[in-house]
């Protein structure tokens, strides 16, 4: 797919490319069956850019992100395609190079910080450990750096929190502590797997604002996986929408969110509750996501799609250029455009 004439939105051809993923596929196999979790996914990320991968459960968004760090169980997973991070081929890396890459060039933050933080070490120790291992600092220097990091993520009274254990912190502070651990080695790329989903609305907004600020200050790239379009609007430069393991629409955040073209993106925006008229039903996407164990040969969304034609189920649609810099994998973009004009999306 990388060979298609779609240009990368928002950027000129430059050497500022931090990450390039082309034709990524991930297959999980057991003795009984194999699951094609990710299929032909390509995207790229410039230095200091935020890409949101949007999708619902089972769309392959988390798998895509984990494969960038090669965090999937090696024995049962087959990763195909190319991942180039900062000029290095990730899929060709040996274990030692991988370990060096994780935590120094790339860090990850998760939805549930309790599972990512070690309950028996204090927050300060956990941040310091990363600093010592990857930057070769002494314990004293590392602890000083840990304090700086807690200040950086705006943890109140950081000296005291340095000695606190994860269970002693509230949900929002824990999330900040995990971000501090992830930032301990000033990564070039931060992978964020729904880090604000479990938080309350008033805390979520705080964490999102913090992440955006840190990202701008440190100039790091972020790949942010979420199912929440509002979160994407808040933080993303570029947006990639995934469905059943494929990237169905890709482009600049404002283009995709305000002017969606792929029927799935349109459906997802329409079915998101946002001040709709209470007297009518929400325009829900009918049906359920497909079974990844036996995907239809054509467009996986066709069975649920109001625009579907017969040829949609026959062959996988190629990416078609949107009026702006993005693309959508749909053969009926002209028709979807007409509908989108009649019913503008409510922000």
């Amino acid at each position: 797919m990388s060979s298609t004439a779609i240009r990368e939105p928002g950027t000129s051809l430059s050497t500022d490319e931090l990450l390039n993923v082309s034709d990524l596929s991930v297959e999980f196999s057991t003795r009984r069956e194999s699951v094609q979790a990710v299929n032909g996914v390509s995207f790229s990320l410039q230095k200091g850019e935020v890409l949101c991968i949007i999708g619902e459960s089972g769309s392959g968004k988390s798998v895509t992100m984990r494969s960038l760090m090669r965090l999937l169980p090696e024995s049962r997973t087959h990763i195909g395609g190319n991942i180039t991070l900062d000029g290095q081929d990730v899929l060709a890396m040996r274990n030692r190079q991988l370990t060096a890459m994780r935590g120094s060039k790339v860090s990850m933050i998760f939805q549930e910080p309790m599972t990512a933080l070690d309950p028996v070490y204090s927050i300060g120790d956990q941040i310091a450990e990363g600093v010592m291992r990857h930057l070769g600092k002494t314990r004293k220097e590392a602890t000083a750096r840990a304090l700086e990091l807690l200040e950086l993520v705006r943890v109140p009274s950081p000296e005291r929190r340095l000695r606190a254990y994860p269970h002693e912190l509230s949900g929002g502070l824990r999330q900040r502590a995990m971000i501090a651990v992830a930032l301990s080695c000033a990564p070039k790329l931060l992978l964020a797997d729904e880090p604000t989903t479990a938080l309350d609305a008033t805390v979520q907004i705080q964490v999102l604002i913090l992440l955006k600020k840190l990202q701008e200050e440190m100039g790091m790239g972020i790949i942010f996986v979420t199912h929440d379009l509002g979160v994407a609007a808040q933080i993303a430069d570029k947006v990639a929408v995934m469905y059943a393991g494929r990237l169905v629409e890709y482009g600049l955040a404002r283009d995709i969110l305000l002017n969606p073209r792929h029927p799935y993106t349109i459906g997802m925006l329409n079915s998101t509750v946002r001040g709709q008229d209470r007297s009518v039903d929400i325009e829900a996407i009918p049906g359920n996501p497909p079974d990844l164990r036996n995907l239809p040969p054509g467009c996986a969304f066709a069975p649920r799609c109001g625009f579907a034609l017969e040829q949609c189920s026959a062959a996988q649609p190629e990416p078609a250029a949107r009026p702006d810099a993005g693309y959508a994998r749909c053969i009926r973009l002209d028709e979807t455009a007409k509908v989108a004009e009649r019913h503008p999306i409510k922000a």
């Binding site: 999102l208 509002g230 305000l258």
Partner: peptide, 23 residues
């Protein structure tokens, strides 16, 4: 609570959190 709701428009980003801290 209402001000913490995220807009779908990237041009309407919230830059200042309405509340600080956790409940």
């Amino acid at each position: 609570l209402l001000a913490s709701q995220l807009s779908m428009d990237p041009a309407e980003r919230v830059t200042e959190a309405p509340l600080s801290g956790d409940p």
